[in-house]
Simulated scan of single mutants.
Amino acid sequence: MTIARMTPASSSVTPSSSAAERFFGGHAALPVMPEVGRKLLRSLDDDGVSLGQIAELIGKDSTLAAKVLRLANSARYSPSHTIGTLQDAAMALGLETLRNLAMAASISGSFPVVQGLDRQKFWRHSVRTAGHARLLAKLLQGDADTAYLAGLMLRTGQLMMAMTDATQVADVESHASEPGSRFSLEMSRFGCTHADVTAALAAHWHFPADLIEAFKDTNAPLDVRPFSMLAAILHLAEVIADAADRELDAIDALKVAVPELVEHLHMDLDFLRLRLEGAGDPGQDVELMLK
């Protein structure tokens, strides 16, 4: 896997990306990703990394370690016994889940509380998007680790937007009653979407060019050439997470919001429904991550 390598990126400038840059001046201080979080991201590119190394890395940040242990002991993972150490968590959860929990806790901790967005609701949606992106990537033969990271990051641009214009962001959220509608509402108000601002943030954080471009393409993946499977996965995952927020049927939401994308990908929606039901709610214990 090379997508996670933290190298400087260069990408073309579009009207939406230019509009997105205005959210990185003035009072909107650029969030700083903790060093442990950066190393966790780099570990995605290391096929030889071990469970022990990931547990040791998480242990270097006591706050992060405490969050990971709370999550490991949560109802979602239903441990048969209390998990008291990171080594126990590593053995119980496995490398992929342990690292994903740690990345979620690290990235969420990089951002302040902002007006216009309910913090717990926001991060529950983000973790849901990440979990659904991971599931979709496995079904569509994508990179599940990268999809999880990208899904987790997808709405972070909206936090940057809220730091600058909390009233408008809150207004968008109040009107985004249909799954997937956030993209068009933001474009009409700001000339860019949260995905565009996330792309700009990813560029400031020196993420790889492929990931930055995928964020940009998430707004309308069918309109972009070459087609980005990751962008399509992200758009689908956000629609599913939106449906969960509104207690709507995820498959019905996809049929209404993105029928052309579903058709383009030749998706078996009955099978997807079974997989979603089997996976449960990825965001059910998010409050433990935010303590």
Rank of each mutant, 00 (worst) to 15 (best):
D145P: 07
K216W: 03
A170K: 07
W123V: 04
G280K: 03
D268P: 02
A195K: 01
R189M: 03
L93C: 03
A102L: 01
R134C: 11
E238V: 09
A257R: 02
D270Q: 11
M267L: 13
R42D: 12
A55M: 07
M289I: 08
A72Y: 06
F122V: 04
V286I: 15
A147W: 11
Q53T: 10
V68C: 01
A75T: 12
A170D: 09
V256T: 15
A209L: 03
F207A: 03
D61P: 03
E247Y: 09
D118W: 01
A253C: 07
D196M: 03
G278E: 11
F215L: 03
K291Q: 14
A133Y: 03
M267I: 07
T218F: 02
A102M: 05
M160N: 04
K67P: 06
V286D: 10
P226T: 02
V239A: 08
D47L: 15
A90R: 06
V127Y: 02
L40V: 01
Q168D: 13
D171A: 15
A279C: 06
H175K: 15
T146L: 10
A279D: 09
G280P: 01
L64T: 04
P8E: 13
S17W: 14
F122H: 00
G48R: 15
A144R: 10
L71G: 13
A220S: 14
V239P: 05
L159Y: 08
A65C: 06
S184L: 13
L51P: 00
A19C: 09
A279M: 11
G84T: 14
A29H: 14
S177Q: 14
L51H: 10
A257P: 01
A144Q: 10
V172T: 07
L136A: 05
L30N: 09
A19P: 04
L230I: 06
H266E: 14
K291G: 13
A232E: 07
A130R: 07
L149E: 01
E260N: 13
Q87L: 10
R70A: 09
D61A: 06
R225Q: 14
D88E: 15
Q158V: 08
R275K: 12
E213Q: 05
Q141M: 14
P15D: 12
V49Q: 04
E186D: 00
S12D: 10
R134Y: 01
A241L: 06
F111V: 04
T146C: 12
S184E: 13
S78M: 15
K39Y: 02
E96P: 09
T164P: 04
D171I: 00
